[in-house]
Simulated assay, not measured.
Amino acid sequence: MNMPIVLTITSLLIASALDANNYERDALTIDKSVNQDLEFQFPNDNSVYPEISDFEVVNYVTMSNEYGERKVTITLHNTSTGNRIFVSDQVMALYANGERVTPYQEKVSFKGKETQTLTLTFNSSKYPILKVYTRN
């Protein structure tokens, strides 16, 4: 076998192994479950709250990967009898350092009294998400 072919094959094998390793780091895993009824008392000096809405959180699961990317699969219920549009600033995550963050832009239509499950993307952080909530 000539040397350029061996180098090419070796390079392809190394690149394939690196891609598999990056895929594993990108993969989201479900974070350890925290009781969703826990109350945290982090200071909120800047009065950061989600926008008032007709949505309530039924349940949620937080996920992350080795790069600190944060996502939440959340089930929301429209408490109104009328149609509503859910927008990102109507839900907020509380991180373990006390930071409060809304997800990246999302817009979903709900019929009256409808319940839907969505996956929302939050910013990357070394701190896990402790709680996800709305404000009625």
Rank of each mutant, 00 (worst) to 15 (best):
N2S: 13
N2V: 04
M3P: 08
M3V: 15
P4T: 12
I5W: 08
I5G: 03
I5D: 12
L7G: 10
S11G: 15
L13V: 08
I14F: 03
A15C: 01
A17Q: 12
A17N: 08
L18K: 09
D19L: 11
N22C: 04
A27Y: 02
A27F: 02
D31E: 11
K32Q: 10
Q36W: 05
D37Q: 10
L38V: 09
F40W: 15
F42E: 02
P43D: 09
N44A: 00
D45Y: 02
D45P: 00
D45G: 03
S47F: 10
Y49D: 05
P50K: 07
I52T: 14
S53K: 08
V57F: 09
V58D: 07
T62D: 03
M63C: 07
S64Q: 14
S64G: 11
N65Y: 09
N65H: 02
K71Y: 03
V72H: 04
T73E: 14
T73L: 05
I74E: 03
L76N: 06
L76Y: 07
H77K: 14
H77C: 01
T79C: 05
S80W: 08
T81M: 08
N83H: 10
N83Q: 14
N83T: 14
S88M: 02
D89W: 06
D89I: 08
Q90T: 00
M92Q: 12
M92P: 01
M92E: 07
A96R: 12
A96E: 14
R100S: 01
R100A: 01
V101E: 13
T102G: 03
P103S: 02
E106N: 15
V108C: 06
K111Y: 09
G112N: 15
G112I: 13
K113Y: 15
E114G: 06
Q116Y: 03
T117H: 03
L118G: 02
T119N: 01
T119Y: 01
T121D: 08
N123F: 12
S124T: 12
K126E: 11
Y127I: 01
P128N: 09
L130G: 04
L130H: 03
K131P: 05
V132Q: 11
V132A: 12
Y133I: 03
R135Q: 11
